[in-house]
Nucleic acid binder design. Sequence first.
RNA 1: GCUCCUGUGGUGUAGUUCGGUCCAUCAUACCGGGUUUUCAUCCCGGCGACCCGGGUUCAAAUCCCGGCAGGAGCACCA
Length: 503
Amino acid sequence: MDYVKEILEETNPEALNREKQKKRVGLPDLEVNNGKGVILRFAPNPNGPLSIGHSRGVVINSEFAKKYSGKVILRFDDTDTKVKPPLDSAYSMIEEEFEWISGMKPDLVIRASSRMEIYLESAEEMISQGICYVCRCSASEFKELRDSKEACKCRGKKAEESVQEWKMMLSGDIDEGGAVVRVKTDLELPNPALRDWPALRIQHNTHPIVGDRYKVWPLLDFQSAVEDHLQGVTHIVRGKDLMDSTRKQTLLYELLGWDYPETLYWGRVKLLGFGGFSTSSIRKSIEGGDFTGWDDPRLPTVSALRRRGFSPEALREFWIELGLTQKDISIPMESIESKNSKIIDRTSERRSFIESPRELQLVDDGSTDTMGLISIRRHPDIPDMGTREWDLGTGSIFISENDYSEGLVRLKDFADVDIKGDSALIVSKEKTGNLPIIHWVSSNNSTEARMIVPRDSEIDYAEGVIENIEISTGQCLQLERMGFAMVEEISETNRVSLIWLHG
RNA sequence: GCUCCUGUGGUGUAGUUCGGUCCAUCAUACCGGGUUUUCAUCCCGGCGACCCGGGUUCAAAUCCCGGCAGGAGCACCA
């Protein structure tokens, strides 16, 4: 060590003062062009509401916007009417989910489908300039030529001819698949995916928002390229599966003399415990009746997390901590849950939920004066939250069948009891020894309850009773000795429906 | 097959640009202990990693070369 020190003094003295490594916290720095404001965008396909994976895009983009006092645009990339058709209800759901996750409204919301005129005009302009051309080859014919770096016969035609065919595409005189607009690139490009890539194609389907007004629709690479430029987007943060998209768009930008935004990528994320879910496949399963809806607790959707009681703050912290690596990763749900527990613990009041309740009669032998009112904190560490008051009444209580066994046990926050048959003899109000502590509830203060518990691909129901002290819909509770749950509904008859969150 | 990306403990992540107090950061998981009238929260301690092989160098997680492994794209989807 000293030897190293000596050498350092001679050769590299400043290395001696170097600080010991620290963990970088928060998002990495962005390369920012001198003073120009940062503009980002989050561009989902509204073929369904957001999944957990999407929430990464929301968090990263909105957090970068916050960090640099920039803007973030929510853009609906809804220019496909066929393979992943837009879902009418998804637009408003996504907008709301964006706000919920990020804690802010997007600075601008745009729908690609409502800006079609712009894309079509740009395309026509580019065709007449010879930057793009109309190709009449079939997809398979073109692929074959492309793979051998050969030009197809459409490539060399005059711009005027392309424009004419373009008009036919627009008017619907060419059938789907009969023509496509391509960006003229270099056929010698090593990456075959980039050679004369398709920019717009014909789709005669009805679009759920704008109807059948348009026969030609831009593909993502084209629509996004034009829109990013128009909106002055400075930074694109996207999945690395879109790397080729960046390259295609960069080629187009070069042809047009535009500057391509800085681009950052993240890798693929797999959530352990959830299979490979895509928005399309979830949508299909829901429509097929396998799930109750987008917020089915078994689904890795934002609406399901929200329903179950996850806090958006946990999601934000989680994704920020993960940062922007291009590694493909597998994440256990426990990582997110642990973040969430720490956040919601301080706001979650405690309640007793007794699964499979068994009624016991408290017996007071007269030596103790116990029947009556008892008072328990709503949160053990936060006295300001107040107390829950129970009235033992005649002494009827519930404990869980799982906790039942004859002998001595401590009823939490109350007394040591000796259980025999259906009675529980109060032995001591003070805690004596190290008796097992179980949770319980006075029948007087209880009401029927049912909790939805997702287990793998099944939904289980835990039936029981819950303490009826000030329970309200939408409240996140910590059930004593169990974990967190959300109150979903309270019926006319005071039956409480809960949904399980996590331990 | 072609093009591209990525390899740090069980899982993630910092450090890699510009080689040096790096026998490597932090979190989570796990193990042990403490606080607590919850199996929650909180606190303390422990465990455990630079994909492999060469090269350059006084010095390599970091630079170079070669392997290997995993992933993505090669859609008239996004």
